[in-house]
Structure formats: C-alpha cells, structure tokens
Design a protein around this nucleic acid. Structure first.
Lengths: 92, 92
DNA sequence: TCCTCAGTTCTAGAACTATAGAAATGTTGG
DNA sequence: CCAACATTTCTATAGTTCTAGAACTGAGGA
C-alpha cells in the first residue's frame, strides 16, 4: 500500500474520473491542450455553466487538471505527471 | 477518445476506485492474492458484511476484480489486465 | 463609466450511495 | 437432516452528488 497521502489523492482522482461528464472532459483535455471554460462547455452538449464549473473544480482539486488564468480566460490542461501515475489510460 | 464501450468501463472502474474502502480493498488484493470475503472483512476494521458485499459487487461489476468460487468460499483477485489498462497505480 | 463576457457561488430539488441490521440463500461437516 | 458458516439480498436511513437557475464577481472593451 502506498503512503496514506498518496492513496488519498488516488481516491480523489478516481472519484473525479468516475463520472461520465468528467471523464469526457479529461479525455478532451488529453487530446487538446489549453481549452478554456467556454470551449469545453461547447464540446459537451447541454451542460449548464454552473454544472461545468462544479465538475472542473473536482478535476482541479484532485490535481489531475491544472488551470492557468490568462486575461479573462482560464485555460485547462491535464497534469501529465498525475495522469501517468494514476490513470495513464487518459494519455493512451 | 477511446471507443465508447471502453470509456464506459473506465467510468465504472474509476467510480469503483473513487471510494476509500474500495480502494483499500483493491490495494489489499493487489498485495495478497485469493483473499476471501471474510479475510477481506477482517483486514478492514468495522465494515458490516452487507456493506462489504456491496463494495465487492461494484469492484467485480467493473471488471477490475475477479471472483472465483471454491467450496463455500469466494476468492477475489485483481484482474491484472484491467488494472494495467486503467489503474496501474494499483500494481506499483 | 457602462456593458458584456468568463467563470463562480448560492440555493434547492431529485437522484444516487454508503451503511448496516435482519432475513434469506447456499454450502459444508457432523 | 441439522447446525454452522459464508455470502447475498432486502429494507431503511443518513449523507452525498448531480444538475441547473439566479445572482454574483471580475476583467476587458467601447
């Protein structure tokens, strides 16, 4: 068993990926870098902004997705290190 | 994006692992093969049999854990192929 | 400054999940 | 067959999560 801290992150990452919309977001970001909030929203059909925000929060809180603010946009990316460690399936 | 079928299994596997008790079970089984229901229950402190059964069902339904009946016991094992594909972290 | 656009937070309801006790099922040993 | 044990199913409940609308914050452009 890895250390407790790491296992806790594993739970967060897996919980984040264990929901269809969030897995889709993670897969989108693994194919295309630097998408911003609105761009992600457009690729998912019919998801309210508030819902998308909620999903992105879980993904970023887990450490799997990084966000970077640029002007009035926020760009999202898969954190490769975390993905390789817990879910390299995303990068396949 | 992988095919839809595979992504659906990914969601199931990750959902199964995104809960502390179930991650613990998966990690236990990755270290020690062929544990049976009761043996797993003993390694987790204070989990009712009915609850354990429920967790094991999700793990086996996802394909991540295999079960094999032998006499009146059921032995559980990590399915290495599925683990390598979605969560090699388990085998690390 | 004012308006607009990007994204978040608040609120709330419907759906889902974790948990366990009790009852049921199935298997083995006596 | 009966008793004991392994595991599941049923039922109920407390807590969590998904979802979206409405209201909010903050940045940039006219």
């Amino acid at each position: 068993m890895g250390d407790h801290q790491t296992d806790q992150q594993a739970v967060k990452v897996y919980k984040a990926l264990g929901e269809p919309t969030r897995l889709k977001i993670a897969l989108l970001l693994s194919k295309e870098s630097d998408l911003c909030f609105t761009a992600i929203g457009e690729k998912l059909e019919s998801v309210a902004g508030s819902t998308l925000s909620h999903h992105l929060k879980q993904l970023t809180d887990s450490g799997l997705i990084d966000s970077r603010k640029s002007g009035s946009y926020i760009h999202y990316n898969v954190n490769r290190e975390v993905a390789e460690k817990f879910a390299p399936y995303l990068m396949a």
